[in-house]
């Protein structure tokens, strides 16, 4: 009879499930670890954060082309024999750890490391910079530029007559007359 059979099968499968959970409770060791105190030994070919060895890099941009998410940015300066990599950045917030760039590289200049703790306080720290060159200090200068025009522009929207040192209160001040 289907009805009775169903009841017995329900009880039986419940018992099976309970046996499995009990086995895990009693005899199976934990597979998770207490993370910052203990860390798991990573496999050798673990695909962690990318590292580019700029001494080996020829600037062929094969890695940047291989990247499906375009997280590798390579810029050059100079012409002919002076041509050199000015900027080599990997945006690891975009990177999806596929390792295609590593396979594309002929010089084994770009490699995966065992590093995986990549949380940081500033988003810009997610852009790993490997670029060599004399004008390396230009990069922070570029970054500093965008905030600079913002300050005068916000002052301008408040109104031409209001002084720029009152940032927030300028909008209600405009309504007063």
């Amino acid at each position: 009879m289907q009805y009775v059979e169903d009841i017995f099968r329900t009880l039986l499968t419940c018992a099976q499930g309970m046996r499995i959970t009990m086995r895990h409770l009693l005899f199976t060791d934990n597979i998770t670890v207490q993370y910052p105190d203990h860390k798991r030994v990573l496999p050798e070919r673990f695909r962690g954060v990318l590292h580019a060895d700029s001494t080996k890099c020829t600037g062929c941009t094969l890695c940047a082309r291989a990247c499906p998410v375009n997280c590798i940015i390579i810029e050059f300066e100079g012409k002919g024999k002076d041509r050199r990599v000015a900027r080599f950045e990997i945006d690891i917030s975009t990177c999806m750890w596929c390792g295609l760039c590593v396979e594309a590289c002929r010089e084994s200049a770009i490699e995966t490391t065992l590093e995986y703790e990549i949380s940081c306080y500033v988003q810009d720290d997610m852009r790993l910079k490997f670029g060599l060159g004399p004008k390396k200090e230009q990069l922070p200068a570029e970054r500093a530029e965008p905030p600079a025009p913002q300050a005068p522009s916000s002052g301008q929207t408040g109104g031409p007559s209001t002084p720029p040192e009152s940032p927030g209160g300028s909008a209600p001040g405009g309504q007063q007359p």
């Binding site: 009990m22 895990h24 409770l25 934990n30 597979i31």
Partner: peptide, 13 residues
């Protein structure tokens, strides 16, 4: 703790 152990986790530590 029991649920953690049944799922091979550590639970509150």
């Amino acid at each position: 703790k029991i649920s953690a152990d049944m799922q091979d986790r550590l639970g509150p530590m």
